[in-house]
Amino acid sequence: MSFKVTVKPSGHEFVVNEGETILEAALRESVMLPYGCRNGACGACKGRVLDGRVSHTSYAESSLTAAELASGISLLCSARPETDVVIESKEIGAIKDIQVKNLPCRVEKIEKVSHNVAVLYLKLPVNERLQFLAGQYIDIVMKDGKRRSFSLANAPHDDGFLQLHIRHVAGGTFSEHVFHTMKPKEILRFQGPLGSFFLREESAKPVVFVASGTGFAPVKGIVEHMIRHDIKRPTTIYWGAYNLSDIYMHELPQQWAKDHPHIRYVPVLSDPLPADNWAGRTGFVHVAVAEDIADFGNYQVYACGAPVMVEAAHKAFTAQGLDEGEFFSDAFFLSKDLKPAGQ
């Protein structure tokens, strides 16, 4: 059975077919609601149900609390209407004309940049080009149909290769393949671009990037886009990791800060090794940010990486004056973190 969804304040309407989520139907009808992971993990697609009833498929419990659920907040990527519904959600104009494609690509190069991170360079067919916004991601579709999501680390102007930063996860099907058996010229298939983690260029507010681990990948793409297009909003990049070897492209943001006076780079290590001879910031990266900025009222924050970091950053920064609508995130979840429907 199908149901009608009305989006406030835009007034856009679309029909959700049986088996679809609200987000799936919205994207099918080119109604561009904000989203990230599309599997109930990151919380980027939260909206409020103003009228009607929905049920949820699996989702990460941390992305939708019981209190939020009781107040009418819903994860639109896992919400299925049980009646006609009216929802409240922002819409995003910047991605409405970008086509999501299913494409093959060839592995051009695999570069091991640290003990647990590899940079994958993917080449598209000669007659194809992927239009995307810096910071978006793609889904690698494996032979068994399972998907693995990875942020694009290159900016759109530098699209000779699509660049992915792959962290080695013990037992992880795709990352084990990348680190141990993948060879150049291998053919992969992917869907993309996806997600709404990209720079809101209409704003003039100072930008704070908060990355942990390979959450640096989309930050890299966005900063390179900003440099290319001479976007000189005051920009601070915080990159958190365990030790210095985990800051796998340390020299790159250092060079950005050296070449561009409006860019500041702050690496933060939570567990530096004696061999690191580390004299920089230590502790949790979100704490370092909160120590440096007493009032977030005039900032935009883009946070990407481990979900515990993204959640802690959101809580801390909004408590210090950050507007909820100025926090943009992309949290890296594993499927084990999802809560089955009805639990």
Rank of each mutant, 00 (worst) to 15 (best):
K4F: 06
K4S: 10
P9I: 13
S10L: 08
H12A: 15
F14E: 09
F14V: 13
V16N: 02
N17H: 14
T21N: 09
I22V: 15
A25T: 04
A26G: 13
S30I: 11
M32Y: 06
M32A: 15
P34Q: 11
R38F: 04
G43D: 02
K46H: 08
G47N: 03
V49A: 02
D51A: 12
D51V: 07
V54G: 00
Y59V: 02
Y59I: 01
L69R: 08
L75P: 00
S78F: 00
A79I: 06
P81Q: 06
I87G: 05
S89P: 02
K90W: 08
E91C: 03
E91W: 02
D97G: 12
V100S: 07
K101N: 12
L103C: 07
R106S: 14
V107R: 03
V107Y: 05
H115T: 15
K123W: 01
L130M: 13
A134F: 04
I138T: 02
F150R: 01
A155M: 09
F161N: 11
Q163A: 08
Q163C: 12
L164P: 00
L164W: 03
H165N: 09
R167A: 12
A170S: 14
G172M: 11
T173P: 07
T173G: 08
T173Y: 12
F174R: 06
V178T: 07
F179I: 07
I187F: 09
I187M: 15
L188M: 13
G192D: 04
L194W: 01
L194A: 07
S196T: 15
S196D: 11
S196W: 00
F197E: 01
F198H: 11
E202P: 02
A204C: 10
T214P: 00
A217P: 01
V219S: 02
K220I: 02
I222G: 03
V223N: 07
E224H: 10
E224L: 10
M226G: 04
R228P: 00
P234C: 06
D246S: 10
H250K: 14
E251R: 13
E251M: 10
L252F: 08
P253H: 03
W256D: 03
H260T: 10
P261V: 11
R264D: 11
S270N: 15
D271W: 07
D271I: 06
P272N: 09
A275Q: 13
D276E: 11
N277C: 12
W278D: 04
T282I: 14
F284Y: 14
H286L: 03
A288W: 01
A294S: 11
A294C: 03
G297V: 06
Y299W: 09
Q300C: 05
Y302H: 05
A306S: 10
M309C: 06
M309K: 01
E311F: 07
A313G: 04
T318C: 11
T318E: 08
A319W: 01
A319H: 04
E326H: 13
F332V: 04
F333Q: 03
L334W: 12
L334G: 13
